[in-house]
Design a protein around this nucleic acid. Structure first.
Lengths: 236, 236
DNA sequence: AAGTGGTCTAGACCACGCG
DNA sequence: GCGTGGTCTAGACCACTTC
């Protein structure tokens, strides 16, 4: 026998999910306010919010600051095996990339970074922090770190050029190898602030370590994706 | 100036996170009940729960049915590029694997499956559904589908042997290639039930398509990981 | 039977975004 | 200034687990 759904928040989730999948609520569309929706579904804001949080976890809707809830755009296909160039990747998929540079500076390496890079305590490393947008939506925040001895006068360079390209220009070849680690987690503190999302929002953390020919770490790249913004795919 | 945290639920999250990271609350330990904790922190269950949900999204704690909240074990490192054998992968990391076979049968292929496999409408496909455990915890639910013409008498075989191995025995070589897609999302309906988690809990969905030498799909594998149970890593 | 998390009610005040 | 989501209170009953 078919059991009708007992739980209100799932009934609401299903109703909204249906509207989204049918295309009645197109990508980018703003949902009515929580108060309005809770009247429509004859429930409280808390119960309604539970339905919204499930849809958020599924990647079907997202929020932006206190502006409201919106239907998520299609996920960007991100291939971490191929060379990473955000702009060409986004454009190839018919979408519009934008990058905002938050910081490019030489910073003291913390304990974790010293170990990771294999540099002595109290060293400096280059740090680049960027926000990256897809079709106007902040989809990704990333931090790149680079050993200071790898590219001379690094901070004077044109940082619109991908790091890998700068490295190629300097050394005549790309990184010898990279390792990638992908961790589903939640944004907290400085990451949440840079991404302009609430503390505790789901994100995908992608860590990449880049090595030279002697297996030394040249630098590393921490990417924090809105978890609804990306699907990772590659050939194995 | 240092701003002390205004938001109660973050204060609570920080307190619990500190206890977990310090090791005072070891992996697998049960937290006190929500009611007890809400008294300890002098707040309501709803506010307290918000803190717990953030920790869950971060992968630091998890729940099991209605039994309570527990400290998450270390994430298993999963390399989707190397050959997939769950048992050897888990054992190599010093942990104890277990598999429960839920179903192994020939089932009618739905529309999506027909397209994916390139088989005519109303075809059957083999379907294997399993729960997989790490150190006694249900960490992964997966569904494998296989074209019925690929391995004769498939259902009579020893299904403890990895599918790739059975394929090798039949054809003298492994799959020609595979594609992998990784999507962070939430469990709903039959997936949530098979994983014994609440609807809306965060999971990582890993889809693998396996091809033969002529680029035809032989079969596919849907894996649903508890998102706190796994970190995906590979060389690029 | 007692305890747990799951779900829900009916409100409240606050900080931020936008006009 | 008004509407939005963010946060919080103080309860309630239910379904399931464990003893």
């Amino acid at each position: 026998m078919l059991r009708t759904e007992q739980r209100q928040f799932l009934t609401i989730r299903n109703a909204l999910a249906e509207q989204i999948e049918s295309g009645l609520l197109p990508s980018g569309e703003k949902l009515p306010s929580e108060r309005t929706l809770s009247e429509v579904f004859k429930t409280t804001r808390i119960t309604l919010k539970e339905a919204l949080l499930v849809l958020e976890a599924e990647g079907k809707i997202f929020r932006e600051g206190r502006k409201g809830w919106f239907v998520s755009p299609e996920r960007l296909a991100y291939n971490p095996v191929e060379t990473f160039s955000f702009h060409s990747m986004v454009e190839k998929q018919g979408r519009v990339p934008k990058t905002v540079l938050l910081e490019a500076a030489s910073v003291p390496a913390d304990v974790d970074m010293c170990r990771r890079m294999g540099v002595p305590p109290l060293s400096s490393v280059y740090c680049i922090r960027r926000q990256r947008f897809i079709d106007g939506r902040l989809a990704l925040y990333n931090e790149q770190y680079l050993r200071t001895d790898v590219i001379p006068e690094f901070l004077e360079k044109n940082l619109d050029i991908p790091l890998l390209e700068l490295y190629r220009q300097e050394h005549g070849k790309g990184y010898a190898s990279s390792s990638v680690e992908i961790i589903p987690t939640a944004a907290m503190g400085r990451v949440a602030q840079a991404m302009k999302i609430a503390d505790g929002s789901p994100i995908v953390h992608v860590v990449r370590n880049n090595f030279d020919g002697e297996n030394r770490v040249i630098g590393c790249d921490f990417a924090f994706w809105r978890s609804d913004a990306v699907k990772i795919h590659f050939a194995a």
